[in-house]
Simulated assay, not measured.
Amino acid sequence: MPHLLLLSFATLLIVAVLISERAHRTVLSTAVLFLLGGFVLGDGMLGVIDVAPGDPLVDLLAQLALFSVLFTDGMRVAIADLRSAWRLPGRALLLGMPLAFAITAVVAHYVAGLPWLESLLLGAVLAPTDPVFAAAIVGREEVPGRLRHVLNVESGVNDGLALPAVLVLLGTLGGERASGWVLFEEIALGVLVGVMVPLVVVRLERLPFLKATENLQPLVAVSVGLLVLAICLVTHANLYLGAFTAGITLASAGPELKNEFERFGELVTELLKLAAILVFGALITPSFLFEDIGLSGWIFAVLVLVAVRPLALLLAFAGSALPRRERVAAMWFGPKGFASVVYGLLVLQSGIPPADQIFHLVALVIVLSIIAHSSTDVAVARQFP
């Protein structure tokens, strides 16, 4: 199975790279290609990729991919950058995200029929956004820079902000190995490791007799990430919060290291993300979408896309200086992406009683989000002069 998975991944990667320029102008983004590829090659269709939620390979891939993504997300958001233009992204994160979390939980309870704790968990899993599925919005010069900044900062930070809620709720429901005070200790230790390791390495790197050669500069940040990962695994600290904290600390204390790491690190992260999305797609089957999810699940998924985020950001941006057209675009473009994919896999592997139902709903929302947001981003971007 690992060999066929590797063969499938390598083949799709070559196809994605070769058609990337043309696909960038259509709804067929790289992530969409891997999701569809996993779906077609998975057990429900061709059966080339045979994976199950409990497979050690799935668990390892999800861990590495999420660690890499959170580390890279943290690297994108230095404290100095946030101070320079924080007001509008702050509204989206500190008001819009909790509102979306809460409204999703209410809809999950009253529409999908989940108990309150499970509804809150589903809200936390679906809280992060990922503009990779709306690349035309954040990547086109005609789109106002203020709007692009709001969406970029929001998506760069909300993965890490949603994570503690996911972990605590999983622990409360009995799906984490640690719960209560032990879980708090793991979270606190992860944050401590994420702060201290980058600070020590940056201080060492600036000593006169210690200096990396120019071609090895990108490996300084990579080595920090690997060291944080290793220490967290050895000490049982929470490696995800360790990764996110380490990224922010390294970008803030050593901005030159952030610049050196940027291209190399993002390519490594992208590879891990695409591999995880391929596995996620392979776990989705036709019966999964059309038989296992009832009408209430479909209604829930549609409401999450067309009502939850628009309502949350409508309230969050009330009274702001953001023009109406940009406000409407931000309200619509809250695509569910990679963080929700991996958080959904964590829930599926947790063993809590409603894990399968929650994963079904997460998967449906992500699939519908990819279709809806990837097919409208170019059209909306062209509305800006």
Score class of each variant (00 low, 15 high):
R206A: 12
L207A: 15
F209P: 01
F209N: 13
F209R: 14
A212W: 10
T213Y: 10
E214T: 09
E214S: 06
N215M: 10
N215K: 12
L216I: 10
L216P: 05
P218K: 06
L219K: 03
L219N: 01
S223A: 15
V224T: 12
L226C: 13
L226F: 15
L229I: 08
A230S: 15
A230T: 15
A230F: 15
I231M: 14
C232Q: 10
C232V: 05
T235M: 13
T235G: 07
H236W: 03
H236S: 10
A237K: 13
A237C: 13
L241V: 10
A243K: 08
T245G: 00
A246I: 09
T249A: 15
L250W: 08
L250E: 03
A251G: 04
S252L: 08
S252Q: 08
A253G: 04
G254T: 05
E256T: 08
L257A: 06
K258F: 12
E260Y: 08
E262L: 10
E266Y: 11
L267E: 06
L267Q: 11
V268F: 12
T269M: 14
E270D: 13
L272M: 12
L272W: 07
L272D: 05
A276E: 02
A276D: 04
L278C: 01
V279S: 03
V279P: 00
F280A: 08
G281Y: 13
L283N: 06
L283S: 06
L283D: 07
L283R: 02
I284L: 03
T285Y: 11
S287M: 05
F288N: 09
L289M: 14
L289K: 10
E291R: 13
E291L: 04
G294L: 06
L295Y: 13
S296D: 14
G297Y: 00
G297R: 00
W298V: 11
I299T: 12
F300D: 02
A301K: 13
A301T: 14
A301D: 07
V302N: 06
L303P: 06
L303I: 14
L303F: 07
L305A: 10
A307L: 09
V308E: 05
V308M: 09
